[in-house]
């Protein structure tokens, strides 16, 4: 951030992103709040036709910037060219959406009582981490908790990927292949064309 720029309230949204990750260790139902990180950027791009969310409000972007620049955890090397290619960005978006659909289906199975609640967080779509310590019984229906475990898995996985590429390349490398960023940019392009 520029050294002589006045800070705005939204410059502290990285705290919300950090808090979100922490809350997931105490009560998984907080994971539902992550929907805001999906709905707000999509809403802004669809209604306003800009990327104000990425540009100003994204707490994750700020957090990666902080870790990479302030805490100097980033090597600050160029990202491999293929990651910024159309093919990779859209390919990753499609993969991400398929895995998201898969998570919704798992939630549906629990909702329809064809499946049972699994108190686990799946990291990088592969590793099942036991997460029973963040679930305190049925104040909500099982499917509500199942969605929370699934959504937190999505958020944790993307944070881990973001941190790995923050260390290897530039601090905000995640922004290059962030599915939300790719989607909102595409929405903006379509909106610009149609107007």
């Amino acid at each position: 951030m520029g050294m002589n720029k006045k800070k705005n309230w939204y410059d502290y949204l990285w705290l919300a992103s950090l808090l979100y990750l922490i809350l997931g260790f105490f009560n998984i139902l907080f994971a539902w709040l992550g929907l805001l990180c999906f709905l707000i950027p999509l809403g802004i791009s669809a209604v306003k036709g800009n990327k104000t969310y990425c540009n100003h409000y994204c707490g994750r972007g700020q957090l990666l910037d902080l870790l990479g620049n302030k805490l100097k955890l980033s090597r600050k090397k160029d990202i491999p060219a293929f990651i910024r290619s159309r093919g990779f960005r859209y390919g990753f978006l499609i993969f991400f959406l398929i895995m998201f659909g898969n998570m919704l289906f798992t939630t549906y199975l629990v909702f329809s009582e064809a499946g049972s609640l699994k108190q686990a967080v799946q990291l990088l779509w592969t590793f099942k981490l036991p997460w029973h310590f963040a679930y305190h019984g049925t104040i909500a229906a099982d499917w509500v908790a199942q969605f929370a475990f699934g959504f937190y898995s999505v958020m944790l996985t993307s944070t881990v990927l973001g941190i790995i590429t923050m260390v290897l390349y530039k601090p905000r490398s995640w922004c290059v292949y962030c599915p939300m960023g790719t989607m909102t940019q595409q929405i903006c392009k379509l909106k610009d064309k149609s107007s």
Partner: peptide, 22 residues
């Protein structure tokens, strides 16, 4: 360009904008 806005934030002259999010 992915229009993330990192450049806009560091520009000391306010010379960068991301019109229409593109």
């Amino acid at each position: 360009c992915v229009a993330c806005g990192s450049c806009m934030k560091v520009c000391p002259k306010g010379a960068i904008t991301i019109p229409c999010g593109i």
